[in-house]
């Protein structure tokens, strides 16, 4: 694979092709200065967003929450932590539900994410994000507990399912799916063994509740961080 031959690197003198040489000046100096300022500002916002992911210093937090930074970073979708699989790989959650008619008979059931009912893989992945991001903090001040956050979000999920399905009531479970340890695999433990699932929340929603406002949502005045990291889940191995 060839490298970027046109561009100077710290380890060799800058050698530019004749076509390029002399064209640096084609852009007027004031344009280059203006673009340079824009580039520096843009890269500052790109950098400060992941830098401000908790835990961070109060200086960085203050900088990242400055109105100009947010007014620029939010609409351009630059406010990201980029902490992929960090600080530790996620332990996924599975949401299971059963829907009942007015007589209490189960009319349907399901779960997400589920490779059986959600395909292609990207569609499955969107459902996996629904379950994984159910505990993403809503209130940046931490006044809302993880359980309260989960309850509000899962209630919204349950309402959606009840709206699109016949039935009077939906019961929903939020289960942490713990990952097997190497020794478990060597002993042929099924990765979907019921013991690998830990219930974290269970709730029920009735059809008569569908039109009511979503209870438990906080009134927030504080600015959220770039990308809040959920609290460590209780079921982490």
């Amino acid at each position: 694979m060839s490298v970027d031959k046109n561009k100077p690197t710290p380890q060799r003198p800058a050698v530019k092709p004749q076509a390029a040489r002399g064209q640096v000046g084609e852009l007027a100096l004031y344009w280059r200065l203006l673009i340079s300022l824009a580039v520096v500002w843009h890269l500052f916002v790109v950098f400060i967003a992941p830098m401000s992911v908790p835990p961070t210093s109060s200086t960085v937090e203050t900088l990242a929450r400055l109105t100009p930074v947010r007014v620029y970073g939010d609409p351009l979708y630059l406010n990201h932590g980029y902490h992929f699989f960090a600080p530790d790989p996620v332990v996924n959650a599975v949401v299971r539900y059963q829907i009942f008619d007015s007589g209490g008979q189960k009319t349907s059931e399901g779960e997400f994410p589920s490779l059986k009912s959600q395909w292609p893989r990207l569609f499955y992945h969107r459902h996996m994000m629904l379950s994984d991001q159910a505990d993403t903090p809503i209130d940046p001040t931490g006044r809302m507990t993880r359980e309260q956050t989960l309850r509000v979000t899962l209630t919204a999920y349950a309402r959606h399912l009840l709206r699109i399905s016949p039935g009077e009531r939906i019961d929903m479970q939020y289960l942490r799916h713990n990952v097997l340890l190497p020794n478990d695999v060597l002993q042929n433990v099924d990765p979907n063994d019921p013991r690998t699932f830990a219930e974290e929340l269970r709730l029920s929603v009735s059809r008569r509740d569908l039109e009511a406002p979503l209870a438990g949502l906080p009134i927030i005045k504080e600015t959220p961080p770039a990308e809040p990291i959920p609290e460590p889940a209780g079921g982490q191995p």
């Binding site: 699989f85 960090a86 600080p87 530790d88 332990v91 996924n92 990952v179």
Partner: peptide, 27 residues
């Protein structure tokens, strides 16, 4: 920041992070 974020995690230090990623049934 992908790398710096991982430095905060115990599993990226003790070498088990890839195990917990590939053994994750949902992924």
């Amino acid at each position: 920041f992908g790398g710096l974020g991982k430095l905060m995690g115990e599993k990226w230090w003790n070498g088990t992070a890839v195990w917990f990623s590939v053994a994750n049934v949902e992924y």
